[in-house]
């Protein structure tokens, strides 16, 4: 179990002693929030899921390919 303890300390001390890393992590988290919450939910719906009946996606795309 010592190795688990060492890994825990590696991460704990690493995060505690960050300087520039704190700013970078803040930017990463804001970016991930914008990408996965704002953009994905409000701007990028799954077009086929919204327009085709469930289980009939192939029919929908075949119609698009006419």
């Amino acid at each position: 179990m010592k190795w688990l303890h060492n890994i825990w300390h590696l991460y704990r001390d690493g995060f505690r002693n960050m300087t520039l890393g704190r700013t970078l992590w803040a930017i990463i988290l804001v970016k991930l929030f914008i990408i996965f919450v704002v953009l994905k939910l409000f701007f990028f719906p799954n077009y086929i899921k919204e327009h085709a009946r469930e289980g009939h996606e192939a029919d929908f795309v075949a119609t698009q390919l006419k």
Binding site: L24, W25, I27, I28, K31, L32, I35, L39, K40, F43, F44, P45, N46, Y47, I48, V61, Q64, L65
Partner: peptide, 20 residues
Amino acid sequence: AMGVATGIILEFEFGTNWSN
């Protein structure tokens, strides 16, 4: 850190703009 996840948006665009 700045570049991480910027490519994921491309995958969103596939599903919405390039659905066929």
